[in-house]
Amino acid sequence: MPVHKMVGLALRYLLLIWIAMIFIFPILFMVVSSLKPDLQLLMDSSSLRAFLPVGDISFNNYTSAFDRAPIFFFIFNSVMITGITIVCSLFLCSLSAFSFVFLTWKGKGVVFAIILATFIVPFETIAIPLLLIVNNLPWIGLEGFKTSWINSYHVQIIPFIADALTIFLFVQYFRDLPKDLVEASRIDGATWFQVYRRVIIPLSGPIVATAAILKFLMMYNNQLLWPIMVVQEETYRPVMLGLQYFFQLNTQWGEIMAYLTIITIPVLLFYLVLQKAFIASIASTGIKG
């Protein structure tokens, strides 16, 4: 290999390593710190030792974190809220995208434009009006009739099911699918729902996986502002609010790091599982080819 090529390659790798480190170091710092007692953690944080599991290493932070907060309980809440939202969102958003792409109805273009416009409205802007709405909405659930959605799971789920990004992703993907397939299945006698269910969705593996991952990240990581506003009872609170346990009298940094490490595990699991499904679905449908 000529020298200038080798230099180029080396530079490329250096750049990649540098980028990888930018992403990895915060995580490394989190995991390593979770193994150290607070005193050492604070001292190490001014040197490279912050990223090395050296000194007084133990799982003490984990045991005390578990003692301090009902961690599994928070994880259960978060996973449940996020999971139900994802399932409902994938279903409803893909269904509405289907109608935007394949059905003809009056005002379709206008409605789609309005949905896209909601893209640019940050959640913080609508949080207060939304609070006023859900505060006065009736609900019939397992516990009977209630006059407000405050303090519940569904108040953390329903407002987040439909979102412009997910609809937009599905619309883009559906537009690229061959229209002939839809027409062929209409001639074969499929109802519109059957076209959706038996032809379009089976070919949509990659976009379902992508949308699910994005939705998971949007939900799991952002359960902060809204739950504080609408959920006073601990029973319904998600992981992010569990952090409060560690910011009392004096802040327990080691335990916080342990807690953060634990609640990151579901994210990694979810990502790994979906990545497998993603690759498998591309390989099995093979629309192009």
Binding site: P178, D180, L181, E183
Partner: peptide, 13 residues
Amino acid sequence: IAMVFQSYALYPH
């Protein structure tokens, strides 16, 4: 009626 498309329009899955 039945139709045969130019692209064949076979269901890939």
